[in-house]
Every structure is written in structure tokens, then in C-alpha cells.
């Protein structure tokens, strides 16, 4: 049930991860797995997309993969 979720997909949580180190979309999705947040796959994708649009993180390619990151 959602009340038992131990991870919350919030703008602040995403911001903290991206300040710590550059991450791919897959890296971020791993941090907010549906079984831990209680969200559906579709909700996770939609909410994370909205958060990333708001944060508008910097992007760079590392090992040919696009990574997002933020500076403080």
C-alpha cells in the first residue's frame, strides 16, 4: 500500500541525487522503483518527467550515455 512506501518521488529527492552525481534516466528510475514508492510505472514516468522539466538539470554525455546533474 502507498502508506507503507519507504521512498518518495519528490523534486527535493531528485535534486539531492543530481547534486551528488550525474545520473541517467535509468539510474534515477532505479532510485524510485515502483515497489518502493507505491506508484505505478506510468505515474513514475510522468512525475519524474515533470520534476526534471522543472529542475532543468545540466546534461553531459559520459560513456556515450546522457547524464543529468545539478550544481548547488
Amino acid at each position: 500500500t502507498p502508506s507503507s512506501s519507504d521512498v518518495q518521488l519528490t523534486e527535493e529527492a531528485v535534486r539531492r541525487y543530481l547534486i551528488r552525481k550525474p545520473m541517467t534516466t535509468k539510474d534515477l528510475l532505479k532510485k524510485f522503483q515502483t515497489k518502493r514508492t507505491g506508484l505505478s510505472s506510468e505515474q513514475t514516468v510522468n512525475v519524474l518527467a515533470q520534476i526534471l522539466k522543472r529542475l532543468n538539470p545540466e546534461r553531459k554525455n559520459i560513456n556515450d550515455k546522457m547524464h543529468f546533474y545539478l550544481t548547488e
Binding site: 541517467t24 534516466t25 535509468k26 528510475l29 510522468n46 519524474l48 518527467a49 526534471l52 522539466k53
Partner: peptide, 20 residues
Amino acid sequence: SSSEADEMAAALEAELNDFM
């Protein structure tokens, strides 16, 4: 599963590509 993770990553990137 990893294939579901791949699908989610692809869907997320598609959403963001419209924006970028």
C-alpha cells in the same frame, strides 16, 4: 524486470525529448 526498466527509461526519455 530489466525490460520494464528499459521501457520506463525509454518512455521518460521520450517525454523529455519533447521538452529539450
